[in-house]
Every structure is written in structure tokens, then in C-alpha cells.
């Protein structure tokens, strides 16, 4: 019953019941991890070292680390009962601002984008938490706003800012430690820290509490619901911003078209990981499994070679539908 702290459904103890409900809860919580293991086994048997080679696994890890950052923030937002559609655009804006800010050194390339992203998250949070506007609409607006700003800063994409190769940031973005890319290590460190925050701190518990129903109970119990919401949106924007900075560091430039559809990919990873889109139940461990599963499937379809990469999304979409179907069935069964 005591699993890793990141994989717990509820912060104080996982939902358990008897027999079938317990099984259903297990499937919900660890389903993505189980399928991930199966897919990895299948991939290793089919493609051998072209899949399991260090180069390929490193590429998957690097690709997954950016999505993991975004999806970690998204997990907090969804658990609190919200949604953040702006993260893909925020990631692009962050990359552009990192490249723009690199003229003031690494500090400028990191602080400028994170400050702007934090501000966007603050606006999201205040409009949703204090003004009580719908998260979908508010973050749709900031999605447009941030993407537009990214294009404006780059003169409609015509002006490409380059991060100098000798900048500390570039070296960090491209460095490897023991064969693992530094962005991967940063993403993992952030993920572990987020796990501690979600499962072991007051704030984490309150995120779950605010995600119950529409936050009505949390308000009656005197929880600072608005403040909790503000914080999850700031966190989400900052993590998307961090992903943008790391991508810019790795590619030495920032493109305003970066991260299109990333918000949906992140939401898909969170939901595949067993977190309920209605909020209040889920885990970061599931999100990690969801992120890896999406990225491994993408990689395997690329390995096939004869399949167009468009099939990645066909498979991911099919998978998402299956997960939601299973979740709905389990939820119905548990209520009986």
C-alpha cells in the first residue's frame, strides 16, 4: 500500500476499498506505468538496439524532459480543478525571451523569460482565483496573448535571436552528465521537488482539497481557495517558462512557433497518468508515466520508418480515448 510518494492518489493515504474497487483504484493509479512497461518491452523485442541504444534513449529522455516540466505544472492545475491552455504559448514566448535576453548574459536569458512567464501565470491565477472566471476562457486568452507577444518580439518570426554559444546557459543546455542531458536532470530534480510539495506540504494537501467539487467545501472550511488557485497557475507558467528556456539553451535560439499543441500534449499526459480532469484525484507519478508513454510511442512509430509521423498523433489520440473510457467505467463501478 505504501508506494513511492509521487504515486499516491491522495496526499495522506491512497484510496482503498475492498476487492474490485481496490483493483480499480490500482488500475487507475498504475495503469499508465503498466502499459509503459509493456510498450518498452515490445519496442525492445521488435527494434532491438535501435530502440534501446543509449543514443535513442537519451533522445527520448531529452524530448520527454520538456514535456515533463509542462505536465508537472499541469498536474497541479488539473488537481486543483482547473486547466491551463496557455502553457504551449508561454513556452514559446519564454524561448524567444531567453534568446532576446541572452544579450545580457545568462542571467538575462533566464530571469527575463521567467519573470514574464510568472507574470502571465499571476494574471491567469488572479482572473481565475479572485475574479472567478472560467479557467478555459482565461487561459485561452493568455494562449493567444503569449503567442502573439512571441511573434511581436521576433517581428513576425523574421528576427531570430541567437544565444551566444559561449554563454553558460548554452553550455548547460547542451551538456551531459554521465551520458544524461542536463535538461533531463533539471526536469527530474523539479519533478522530485514537485512531488514533495504535492504530497508532503500544506499547499499540496490544499490543492487536492480545492479540487474537490467546485471548491465549495474548501471555501466553507475556510481554506484560502483563491490563493491556492493563483499559486498553481503561477507554478504552471513558471515550469512552462523553464521548459522554454531549456529548449532555447539547447537549440541556441527561440522560435515563436515552438510548443504549438504542447498544452494538449501535457493535458493528455496528465490524464493518461490517471489524474481526473475534473480535479481532486491523481498523482505526479502517473504524469511521469504518461509523459514517457507518449514519448516512447512517438519514438517507436518513428522507428517503424514506413509509417508517417502523423500516426504518432493517431496512436496517442486512440490511447487517450481508451484511458478516459477506462476511467469513466471505473468511476461508475466505484460509485455503485
Amino acid at each position: 500500500m505504501t508506494t513511492g510518494q509521487a504515486e499516491r492518489a491522495a496526499p495522506l493515504s491512497p484510496a482503498t476499498g475492498t476487492g474490485r474497487t481496490r483493483l480499480a483504484a490500482l488500475a487507475q493509479r498504475h495503469g499508465a506505468a503498466l502499459v509503459l512497461v509493456l510498450v518498452v518491452l515490445l519496442g525492445s523485442l521488435t527494434f532491438g538496439s535501435s530502440f534501446t541504444g543509449a543514443g535513442n534513449l537519451g533522445a527520448i529522455a531529452l524530448d520527454a524532459s520538456y514535456l515533463l516540466l509542462v505536465a508537472t505544472g499541469m498536474t497541479f492545475v488539473i488537481l486543483s480543478g482547473g486547466i491551463d491552455l496557455s502553457v504551449g504559448s508561454v513556452l514559446a514566448l519564454s524561448g524567444v525571451l531567453a534568446a532576446y535576453g541572452s544579450r545580457w548574459g545568462t542571467a538575462g536569458a533566464v530571469l527575463l523569460p521567467l519573470a514574464v512567464c510568472g507574470l502571465i501565470g499571476l494574471v491567469n491565477g488572479l482572473l481565475i482565483g479572485r475574479a472567478r472566471l472560467a479557467p478555459f476562457v482565461v487561459t485561452l486568452a493568455t494562449l493567444l496573448f503569449a503567442r502573439g507577444l512571441a511573434f511581436a518580439v521576433t517581428q513576425e518570426g523574421n528576427q531570430v535571436y541567437i544565444i551566444p554559444a559561449d554563454l553558460a546557459l548554452t553550455r548547460i543546455g547542451q551538456a551531459n552528465v554521465l551520458g544524461v542531458g542536463v535538461p533531463v536532470l533539471i526536469a527530474l530534480a523539479v519533478f522530485v521537488a514537485a512531488g514533495v510539495v504535492l504530497n508532503r506540504t500544506r499547499f499540496g494537501l490544499r490543492v487536492f482539497a480545492a479540487g474537490n467539487g467546485d471548491g465549495h467545501a474548501a471555501e466553507l472550511m475556510g481554506l484560502p481557495v483563491a490563493r491556492i488557485r493563483v499559486r498553481v497557475y503561477v507554478l504552471s507558467s513558471l515550469l512552462a517558462g523553464l521548459a522554454g528556456v531549456l529548449i532555447a539553451a539547447q537549440t541556441t535560439s527561440g522560435l515563436p512557433t515552438l510548443g504549438e499543441g504542447r498544452e494538449l500534449e501535457a493535458i493528455a499526459a496528465v490524464v493518461i497518468g490517471g489524474t481526473l480532469l475534473t480535479g481532486g484525484a491523481g498523482s505526479l507519478g502517473g504524469t511521469l508515466a504518461g509523459v514517457l508513454l507518449l514519448k516512447v510511442i512517438q519514438n517507436l512509430i518513428n522507428q517503424v520508418g514506413t509509417l508517417s509521423s502523423a500516426y504518432q498523433q493517431v496512436v496517442s489520440g486512440t490511447f487517450l480515448v481508451l484511458v478516459v473510457l477506462v476511467q469513466a467505467t471505473l468511476a461508475r463501478r466505484r460509485r455503485q
Binding site: 487536492f208 474537490n212 472550511m221
Partner: peptide, 28 residues
């Protein structure tokens, strides 16, 4: 009101259905 020592059991109970009893007691 809670800080002043008044506790209320609302008609809809205002429980956190997604959490266990301990978390329900201590949330906040």
C-alpha cells in the same frame, strides 16, 4: 469564524470527498 471557535456542520457537510478522514479533519 473558525478561528473564533465556531465550527459548523453544513447541510451538504462540506466534506472533501476525494480525501480520507484525516485529511478532511486537517485541511486548513
Amino acid at each position: 469564524a473558525r478561528a473564533l471557535g465556531i465550527e459548523t456542520v453544513y447541510q451538504d457537510l462540506a466534506l472533501f470527498d476525494n480525501l480520507d478522514p484525516v485529511a478532511n479533519f486537517y485541511a486548513g
